[in-house]
């Protein structure tokens, strides 16, 4: 039984691997991967997650839509969501945060930044 179930919603396998690689440094973490927003929603409805990392630009359903749907869902609206994206403009950041994202990380990413944000939101000292 994992202490922290974390979902990574990202269409790039390279990015999924990099995010997963960083998060696996947290003890007791279990990673579940989804390749787009719809796949992510299916996985969210199937099990409980302590945190979600999502890209914005993805096929089928983008990350912003995923955030708004999760925040509307009474069962999952409290899950911390972190956006990882190439979109570095201030308005993109504000839009994501307004929809309910807890943090916003721009690419190119460094694994320690992901780890830092995860530890902060999961309240791991």
């Amino acid at each position: 039984m994992a202490d922290y179930n974390i979902l990574i919603v990202e269409d790039s396998p390279t990015m999924r691997q990099l995010i997963s690689f960083a998060l696996k440094r947290i003890k007791g973490v279990r990673i579940v991967e989804a390749s787009d927003g719809v796949d992510g929603l299916k996985k969210i409805s199937a099990e409980k997650f302590q945190m979600i990392f999502t890209d914005i630009n993805m096929p089928v359903m983008d990350g912003l839509k995923l955030i708004s749907l999760v925040r509307e869902d009474v069962n999952h609206k409290g899950i911390p969501i972190v956006v990882i994206t190439t979109e570095g403009a201030q308005e993109d950041r504000q839009r994501a945060l307004a929809l309910g994202a807890n943090d916003y990380i721009t690419k190119p990413i460094q694994p320690n930044r992901i780890l830092e944000v995860a530890r902060q939101l999961l309240q791991i000292t």
Binding site: S12, P13, T14, Q17, L18, F21, T86, K107, P108, I109
Partner: peptide, 27 residues
């Protein structure tokens, strides 16, 4: 991860896609 991904397939299109992902996401 870049090296691992580059050698994870023998499909030409996938190799190109991985190179693109590395240049966008890691660089």
């Amino acid at each position: 991860i870049a090296s691992y991904q580059l050698h994870s397939t023998l499909d030409f299109k996938e190799v190109l896609q991985i190179i693109m992902e590395i240049v966008i996401n890691l660089i």
